[in-house]
Design a binder for these strands. Structure first.
Lengths: 324, 324
DNA sequence: TCCTGGCGTTGCGCCTGTCGCAACAGCTGG
DNA sequence: CCAGCTGTTGCGACAGGCGCAACGCCAGGA
């Protein structure tokens, strides 16, 4: 995924896979070809080719000019150039010189120098006083801290959930923990389903569902004891309500890395869930796959858990987590 | 530094304004209250005060105009404005509207709209399609990942190390772990020292020094065993080379949160070290205070550890770690 | 249900901010 | 010592950026 691909949010609370594709990305961008491509996490690296440097710079300038012709009247060219410089620094293994960055983007070095100096005023980049080379500044770290707090988890996850729903051919959900309950923030129904309840926006007791068990398994034991003391209601005759059986179940979840639910919330409905971690490795959500017990058989659980883990990893990557 | 505040300009945000409220540019009294500022980590927060909104906007515009008059010929005004918008978003608790951001920075809302749209092209901000409000984009997370990899730990830490050296009146160092050894990346000597060896750029075996014990204590035990099997050379007759005594010492380090070295590297020289963690909470470096045994007495260790922890926390804060 | 106020967007024309050029100072390596 | 390269900066041309005004849309209140 490139930076300019937009991660639009979707008003629909529950997506059916048969629907139309997600809208295409917003406007095109300057193509940045670093001399030594080191993939920023989640981005494919570009090949390092030995070409005539003069020709490379001329190509970069032509490319920039073509893209700038496509800027509409409501874009600001110099800001777009400055942003391209930031992204170029994001693709550098370490620091980079003014002339080097200018060449990559097809800009004049005096233009690059002024744009970088302006970015440095606000701390977005820093210039090494000894070498004159630039790197990303600490303010970027601070902005990222805030970006993590405000990002749209649902919008980020939906494309991955749709992919999983197609692969698993079951209902797929994303849930977070809120007020001692599991809150479904996104649901994508499988292709061969008719009337499936939409749980988006609704809460379910933690102990009754697979994703709830993911959250419970990450809680300190004293919190699990507190919840048990408050009473664990049985939703079906298979709901785990006893303390010992619950703690054993949570130990299994930790050991396996996934949680299961066999008719514990709705009779005849089974599910598998896995954790989703954010950029700092913290549990932030759970992905689950659910469906009728006639299809979500115990023998199929490992395969579904594997698919769910892949989706979880893809969501984590989009949340900025480093690739393992 | 906040978005509205820049280098060399008036940092006062509670300045008393004489005279009546100033009418807004449109000649109407604005009613909307300013956005509540939530401090981004490490940045002072803007005061949340009940004031006349029109006056607030006029003040913001005056402040912006004053700052822009100070821009030299080698800064790019529109890029500086766009950067200020990014920083303003970094100070918002959640998302923010175009008009809201424009008011905070004293810009026209059409200007803010175009600048934000340009930042969105590059993924630095995202606009919620339903509400039209902006938030920081995922590209910021990716840039932060790279920023963390390229930041200048030494440059960041030096001011804090200097402060610690003055407070402790001893030699202070910052070390990282490299290739199973401790590597000193910065050293600041205390005020009352004469000829003190400079270890910057040099490696020391982990088991021989306090900062090395910090790194060892964070290693899996199997790695400690591996290093022991490779042989732990004695530098003095006090060097800990036995496996059991070393594991016990590392357990003490973990329990106390600091490490000590009493003549184990150099006879007559003692030291205290504490861990330094990065924005993700990972051990990234160690700060140590060292000096002659005649001054670094066991009774002084707790005080030096406390000073070192304060310095460590300050460095972590500058690395983008959230404030505890 | 209708109306009002506020939002974000965009066409337009003005003017000044941005840019590339050229020259400079400094640094590094042969 | 000198050539080559770097990053910076003065300068003038011109078109990019800006504020204004108007628009369509939406939400909330009467």
């Amino acid at each position: 995924m490139t930076a300019e691909q937009s991660l639009g949010t979707d008003a629909s609370r529950s997506r059916q896979i048969d629907g139309p594709a997600i809208a295409s990305p917003a406007g095109r961008t300057l193509v940045v070809e670093p001399a030594r491509a080191v993939p920023v996490h989640g981005l494919p690296s570009l090949p390092v080719a030995v070409v005539d440097p003069a020709r490379t710079v001329a190509l970069a300038r032509s490319r920039r000019e073509a893209e700038e012709r496509e800027l509409d009247g409501n874009s600001v060219r110099s800001v777009d150039r400055a942003a391209a410089l930031l992204l170029a620094l994001g693709e550098c293994e370490a620091d980079a010189g003014v002339t080097e960055l200018a060449r990559r983007l097809g800009l004049h070095k005096s233009t690059a120098s002024r744009l970088l100096a302006t970015l440095q005023r606000r701390g977005l980049v820093e210039q090494d006083e000894e070498t004159g080379r630039y790197r990303l500044g600490l303010v970027v770290l601070r902005l990222a801290e805030r970006a993590e707090q405000t990002l749209d988890l649902r919008g980020i996850a939906l494309p991955e959930l749709e992919r999983l729903a197609r692969a698993a051919r079951e209902t797929v959900s994303l849930a977070v923990m809120r007020d001692d309950a599991t809150l479904t923030v996104a649901q994508v129904d499988g292709p061969n389903l008719a009337a499936v309840a939409d749980w988006t926006g609704r809460t379910i007791p933690l102990h009754c569902v697979a994703s709830g068990k993911i959250f419970l398994s990450a809680l300190p034991e004293r919190d699990v004891l507190r919840l048990h003391r408050q009473g664990l209601a049985a939703a079906t005759d298979r709901t785990i309500t006893g303390l010992e059986p619950l703690l054993e179940e949570l130990a299994r979840v930790r050991r396996r890395g996934y949680a299961t639910c066999f008719g514990e919330w709705q009779a005849g409905s089974n599910a598998v869930a896995v954790p989703v971690r954010d950029a700092r490795g913290r549990l932030t959500a759970a992905v689950s796959i659910s469906g009728p017990a006639s299809r979500i058989l115990p023998a199929r659980v490992a395969e579904l858990a594997r698919l769910a883990h892949e989706t979880s990893a893809a969501i984590s990557a989009r949340l900025g987590a480093p690739t393992p």
